[in-house]
Amino acid sequence: MSAADLKAILLEKSVRTGTFTLASGKESDLYIDCRVTALDPVGANLIGEIGWAAVRERIQSEGLAIDAIGGMTMGADPISLAIGMTSARQNPDEMIQVFTVRKEPKGHGRGKQIEGNFKEGDTVIVVDDVITTGGSTLKAIDAIEAAGGKIAFALVLVDREEGGRQAIEARGIPVLALYSRSTLL
């Protein structure tokens, strides 16, 4: 299994052309729903393998110590979990924990906005499935930083190449995209 196999699944299951209104309110000729691929057992395994290889290379080349991986629910959840599971299976000594960021703090219990394996002081990778403007990734970054987390870099499955990468990098957070609009299409 390879990046070409994951690309084929993304193109078959997740990429649609036509006229669409995006979460940002912008109209686009392209709609990408990565959840369909990320929730497919083969797609999830490929995301785990390819994502972990890319993350591990970045960690090693930059000498990073990463505690956890996660992002805004729901798009980031299956991607983060697939990569975390692959890290545990392939490199138990380098395993990274997984968390999720709620859109709003929970209205009961401990009132947390970040759930799972995250604690103040952790250095994390923030994940998103698709970036267009970068808005949802930046919202996750704000929540993580407000909870005392440090962002090493952002990992996205697909960069639509519509300014999101630049908006995230303007915050001083490098973006690692597994695919971009131009490499996917």
Rank of each mutant, 00 (worst) to 15 (best):
G25T: 04
Q90P: 00
A154V: 15
L6N: 03
R56W: 03
I125P: 02
V156A: 14
V158W: 05
E57R: 14
G70P: 15
M95L: 04
L22Y: 13
N117Y: 14
T137V: 15
P174W: 00
D5K: 13
D40Q: 13
K13R: 15
L176F: 05
E62Q: 05
Q97P: 02
A65S: 12
E104N: 08
I114Q: 05
A147V: 04
D40M: 12
S180T: 15
V55N: 02
T21Q: 12
W52N: 01
K119R: 13
I66L: 15
A140Y: 10
K103P: 05
L176V: 13
D128M: 02
E169I: 09
S87W: 04
E94N: 10
G48T: 01
E49L: 12
G172T: 05
A147T: 06
A76W: 03
R171L: 02
A146I: 07
G107Y: 01
R35C: 12
G172D: 10
I96A: 00
I96S: 03
K112I: 01
R181L: 09
Y179Q: 03
K106F: 05
G51L: 03
E57H: 14
A4M: 14
G70V: 11
G63E: 01
L138G: 04
A143Q: 08
E94I: 08
I141D: 06
S61N: 09
A23T: 12
L155W: 12
A23Y: 02
K150L: 12
T123E: 14
T137S: 08
I69S: 03
T17W: 13
P92R: 02
L81D: 03
G109N: 00
G135C: 07
L184P: 08
D29P: 15
S180I: 04
G148D: 03
G134A: 07
M74V: 14
A76M: 06
G63V: 02
S2Q: 13
E104A: 12
L64D: 09
L46I: 14
T133S: 13
G18Y: 07
L11G: 11
A177C: 08
D142P: 07
W52H: 03
G116W: 05
K13A: 13
F99C: 05
E169Q: 13
I125D: 11
V98N: 04
K106Q: 09
E145Y: 04
R165A: 12
Q90W: 10
A146P: 08
K103F: 11
V130T: 00
K119H: 15
A177L: 12
A177T: 11
M95W: 00
D129N: 05
Y31N: 06
T37F: 07
D67T: 06
A82Q: 02
P105V: 01
A146R: 09
G164W: 01
I168H: 11
K119P: 06
T132R: 06
V101H: 07
Q97M: 11
I69Q: 07
T86F: 09
I83G: 01
K13Y: 11
F20S: 08
D67K: 13
A8H: 04
I151M: 10
A4I: 15
L81M: 11
D122A: 04
V101Y: 00
R56Y: 03
V36K: 08
V101S: 03
I114L: 06
R110C: 00
S24C: 03
M95G: 00
G134T: 03
I131K: 10
